[in-house]
Write a protein that binds this DNA or RNA. Structure first.
Length: 995
RNA sequence: GCGGGAGUCGCCCAGCAUGGUCAACGGCGUAAGACUGAGGCUCUUAUCCCUUAGGGGUUCGUGGGUUCAAAUCCCAUCUCCCGCACCA
């Protein structure tokens, strides 16, 4: 068919909006009018919403922006729904990365300095000030704050704080004393990856190549040698002690004899060192060559049996103790080494040995026949292994170990653990060996890890480490109770929270270095960053009143951080004790104390907490636990909203890819609103969203188009229009559509289906507008009228939480002198919902579609179009069918027919034309429930009315002004129907004849 | 191993909660046309196959099942991605 009619909107030249000017203007107005500052308003419902505060060790990039933007949209949306919204922000200085950054600056680390210079464009003078950690934090703090303002976040900045402010530290001390009193802080030892040079734990981002240090626990089994010595072997499979036939020692390396916890051990020098880090007392006595031990025998204290020591080159001195026990039936290496040895007469002669070992099978799995002498032998044959240096041995070993771990059962004649699973037997034997002191355990790094400083890492056993005991059963119960009563959005992620609560156990909560608050009862320790950031939302209502300056001058509404003490927090946050006593104790005026308490009571609990999904297994879980422990149920948070991360043009953002775009730079280039929309529109909340500047540009031009459309219709907002202008079918329709869009968009936002909401606002609304304009244009009627005014007003309001600067500007263009940020969220007007209108326009659209299909297939260029609506009796039948299907849910053709042939109203029609009934049943079944419902609720629908109304559109669509259109009811005897098409008419499916 | 998630029309990606308006949104690409001196941008139309009357056929990782009806629900199966701690 023909192209759509020309857009009536005047083609404006490709002038861009001056986004920077608009943003600056509204930022200034918002600040001047302090519209985002919230205080107690007793008669208004409050909404307290927080988002995880930033760690200021770099500027914000577009990836950070997503969570904050979502929270801001939420805040703005709630504000428009008349809530007294509190949206505050703080800065998390706590932790080690900033400190280690400053050390890298001190040591003149080129890589870091270049990052600062080239990616972040920081002047050298400032970089040199970064030798002091707080300077780094302060610099990025201001940078991030600027960015947040430029993004238009509606934050109440009066409540801002950092986590190393004195007042905050007092608060955290209170939190920790509180947890400790409840018995939730415990002390113990814990193995960590450790850099011996830095004297610090290492984790992934402290290592060269960002390798996560992986710890494994070996069981050391002590074999007795010549009465006075211990030869310890390290194993992951202590249950295989039953199959040990010999030990392996590497004849080519040196071992040491060392006094380890008052026993004389023979190990490698490395192993002695490792043991030292694990708090064994170690002093080396002398050296001994591996070869000196070959051929000797040792006593297995577990079985009270002697086994010989044999040489093997596969023994790795860096692994374990450098001595391993040999289980040839179940270890391919051991099997192969024995085989190699027996074929090597030179070696045997050299050490004067005989090898007459029979592998001892102790574990059965279905993978190997029970007749096989040894699984190791089978697998070595299967993999055609050459010798003990064959790389395929590794694979064979993994295969066998994994098989036996999952499916292995100890043979029935084994002591203690006969018939037990490998898993269970391993546990039993391990415990027994340790208990009898014929063995112990040893941690080791699974992978070779280097600290960024260059030193090789080891495992260190930290002692006297402080833990928060998230494993406490009663505490877990409370945590479950909390999330059961909390809304989690999106709901899909709830399961993950439950799992996390389930497996959380003790977690270290203090370290020796970094910024932060000292552990109140042990000054050597600094409270760790994931422990001091779990209930700080409660600090926001207070922070406004706390003066961290040393300046002793107290203003009437401020208290000195120095004056804060536990009884203050107990009273304000928990309502404990008597106000007067507390006031006296803390030197704070009773009036002010009550005021602060009231402010806390007014704003707490948190109504919504936003964060990225990466924080679910840590921060958010701790947030839940700590609230459950410290606060009463009425102060438990009500909602968590979790969002996915941001990809940059489909790739993960990383420094090495060079695709980290600082947020402020992006704003400068494209404007805040376009960035905000691009972040939110590209994916549903839990998915990773793919950010690209192409999309930002597309959105920016979409906004510009909205601007152009609205400004070209500017006069509709200022002139009062005759209501006769908008009583056409399409006017009722668009009013009805507006109500749907309000309802659907609002529901979507409530559930944080933001992509869907934006899709409605930016695209679906356009479709409706286009249809509406098309109809008006075809009729040659003006489109400047009240329907359009409503449409634009609703659209801009719905858009305003997402694109606040732009919408304020448009709001002004529409003739308003108020802030759209403070306007009312659109509400659904039920009286404007018109079911009939929706069927009207649907019928017109379907009919045009049918005509298009016909002309496409027949290649007719229409001169005449005849449309026949279904006869009255067919409508009656349709109603009856609808009732049958929708209300009685009868769908069986035979059953329905049987009934209708006895129904006087329709029996003639039905008998004459059963096929029609079948078609009508299919028609109804293929409509959605919603449409069926709608048609049930319309008592009479005269199709002639909308079809008559659409003649003008048919003419404009065919592009033929000479087109003759005839619209008849099938019942009309005067109709023009040369091909007898009218009999095919069905309700909502008129028959068509074209020539 | 434990836990979570994904496989859709050339590519990217929506739909799946609440089965029916789904040959399946949108974008990219491709083709034709409008605009232009030419291009770019922009706009229109088309884009699984067949079809001279609004029709039919085959599709949503694979194989089954439930249903009048399945991309959507159930079962099985294959493949891929992410998290697992002392670190923000």
């Amino acid at each position: 068919m023909k192209k759509m009619a020309e857009n009536t909107v005047e083609k404006t030249s490709n002038l861009e909006l001056n986004w920077a000017r608009i943003e600056k203007k509204w930022r200034k107005k918002w600040t001047e009018n302090r519209i985002f500052e919230s205080d107690i308003e007793p008669h208004k419902k409050k909404y307290f919403l927080t988002v995880a505060y930033p760690y200021p060790n770099s500027p914000q990039h577009v990836g950070h922006g997503r969570t904050y933007t979502l929270a801001d949209v939420h805040a703005r949306y709630k504000r428009m729904q008349n809530y007294n919204v509190l949206f505050p922000m703080g800065f998390h200085y706590t932790g080690t990365p900033i400190v280690s950054m400053s050390q890298r600056i001190k040591s003149n680390d080129i890589e870091l300095i270049e990052t600062f210079q080239q990616i972040y464009k920081i002047p050298s003078k400032i970089i040199s000030s970064f030798k002091e950690p707080k300077k780094i934090a302060r610099f990025f703090h201001e940078e991030i704050k600027q960015g947040m303002n430029e993004m238009g976040y509606s934050i109440d900045w009066r409540r801002e704080f950092t986590t190393i402010d004195k007042g905050y530290s007092k608060f955290i001390s209170w939190q920790f004393r509180n947890l400790r009193m409840k018995g939730l802080i415990v002390q113990g030892s814990h193995p960590v990856g450790w850099c011996p040079r830095d004297q610090n734990p290492v984790s992934q981002h402290d290592t060269v190549g960002d390798i996560e240090p992986e710890l494994i626990e070996y069981v050391l089994i002590k074999f007795k040698f010549e009465e006075q010595y211990i030869i310890p072997t390290a194993t992951l499979r202590p249950e295989t002690i039953f199959g040990v036939t010999n030990l392996w020692i590497n004849p080519d390396i040196k071992y040491v004899i060392a006094l380890v916890n008052n026993e004389k051990w023979i190990t490698t020098r490395d192993a002695a060192k490792k043991l030292e880090f694990l708090n064994f007392s170690v002093s080396i006595i002398s050296e001994i060559n591996g070869s000196e031990l070959i051929g000797k025998s040792v006593l297995d204290q577990f079985r009270k049996e002697c086994v010989p020591i044999f040489p093997a080159s596969f023994v790795d001195p860096n692994n374990g103790t450098g001595i391993v026990m040999s289980v040839p039936a179940h270890s391919p290496y051991d099997y192969q080494a024995l085989d190699d040895l027996s074929k090597n007469p030179d070696t045997l002669r050299k050490y004067d040995m005989i090898v007459d070992i029979v592998p001892k099978k102790i574990i059965h799995t279905d993978l190997f026949s029970s007749n096989d002498t040894s699984p190791a032998e089978s697998i070595v044959t299967r993999y055609s292994i050459r010798d003990q240096n064959d790389p395929k041995l590794e694979e064979a070993t993994n295969k066998l170990y994994s098989e036996e771990f999952h499916n292995g059962v100890l043979l029935p004649d084994i002591d203690l653990v006969g018939n037990q699973s490998v898993l269970k037997a391993r546990e039993t034997i391990r415990d027994k060996i340790i208990k009898q002191e014929i063995g112990t355990t040893m941690y080791e790094l699974k992978n070779a890890v280097k600290c960024r400083c260059g030193a090789s890492c080891v495992v260190k056993l930290l002692t006297n480490q402080w833990f928060i005991n998230y494993g406490d059963e009663n505490w877990k119960k409370l945590a479950y109770e909390l999330i059961e009563n909390m809304e989690i959005l999106p709901e899909e992620i709830r399961q993950e929270f439950t799992n996390v609560i389930d497996w959380l156990k003790e977690r270290a909560c203090a370290r020796k270095i970094g910024l932060g608050t000292k552990l109140p009862w042990d000054n050597e320790w600094i409270i760790e960053s994931l422990a001091d950031s779990v209930i700080y939302m409660a600090y926001y209502p207070l922070s406004k009143y706390i003066n961290n300056n040393i300046d002793p001058q107290k203003s009437e509404n401020k208290i000195l951080a120095d004056d804060l003490n536990d009884s203050f927090f107990d009273y304000v946050l928990l309502g404990k004790n008597d106000a007067e006593a507390v006031a006296k104790d803390s030197k704070i005026s009773l009036r002010l104390l009550e005021k602060i308490r009231n402010e806390f009571l007014y704003f707490y609990p948190v109504d919504s907490r936003h964060s990225g999904r990466d924080l679910v297994p840590n921060h958010l879980a701790f947030f839940i636990f700590n609230h459950a422990a410290i606060f009463g149920k009425d102060k438990w948070p009500k909602q968590i909203v979790v969002n996915g991360s941001v990809l940059m043009q489909g790739k993960k953002m990383s420094k090495s890819l060079g695709n980290i775009i600082p947020l402020r730079r992006a704003i400068g280039e494209y404007g805040a609103d376009s960035i905000r929309l691009a972040m939110l529109a590209s994916a549903e909340i839990l998915q990773d969203s793919d950010f690209s500047f192409d999309q930002v540009k597309a959105i920016r031009s979409k906004l510009f188009e909205i601007y152009r459309t609205i400004s070209s219709h500017k006069n509709i907002f200022t002139t009062i229009q005759n209501s006769l202008d908008h009583n056409e079918l399409e006017d009722a329709w668009i009013s009805s559509r507006i109500q749907h869009l309000i309802l659907e968009t609002t529901t979507a936002i409530e559930k944080f289906r933001i992509r869907e909401a934006l899709h409605n606002i930016l695209y679906l609304m356009d479709n409706d507008l286009q249809w509406y304009q098309k109809r008006k244009l075809a009729k040659n009627k003006p489109i400047h009228n009240n329907s359009l005014k409503d449409f634009f007003e609703v659209r801009i309001k719905l858009l305003s939480p997402f694109a606040p600067f732009f919408c304020e500007e448009i709001w002004g263009i529409m003739g308003n002198h108020s802030f759209i940020s403070l306007s009312q969220w659109p509400e659904v007007n039920n009286s404007k919902i018109s079911l009939k209108s929706e069927d009207n326009e649907r019928l017109i659209q379907d009919t045009i579609l049918d005509i298009q299909k016909i002309t496409k297939v027949t290649k007719i260029i229409p001169k005449k179009i005849m449309i026949y609506t279904a006869s009255e009796v067919k409508s009656k039948l349709y109603k009856k069918l609808l009732d049958k299907i929708h209300i009685q849910s009868a769908t069986n053709f035979g059953v329905i027919m049987k009934e209708f042939v006895n129904d006087n109203d329709v029996k003639d029609l039905v008998k004459r034309n059963p096929d029609l009934v079948k078609k009508m049943i299919d028609d109804i079944l293929s409509e959605s429930l919603e449409v069926r419902e709608r048609r049930m609720n319309i008592d009479s629908f005269n199709e002639l009315i909308p079809l008559q109304d659409s003649i003008s559109l048919l003419i404009s669509e065919t592009g033929n002004d000479q087109l003759k259109v005839g619209i008849y009811s099938e019942d009309n005897n005067d109709k023009y129907d040369p091909k007898q098409k009218s009999k095919f008419a069905r309700p909502y499916k008129p028959a068509i004849y074209i020539e």
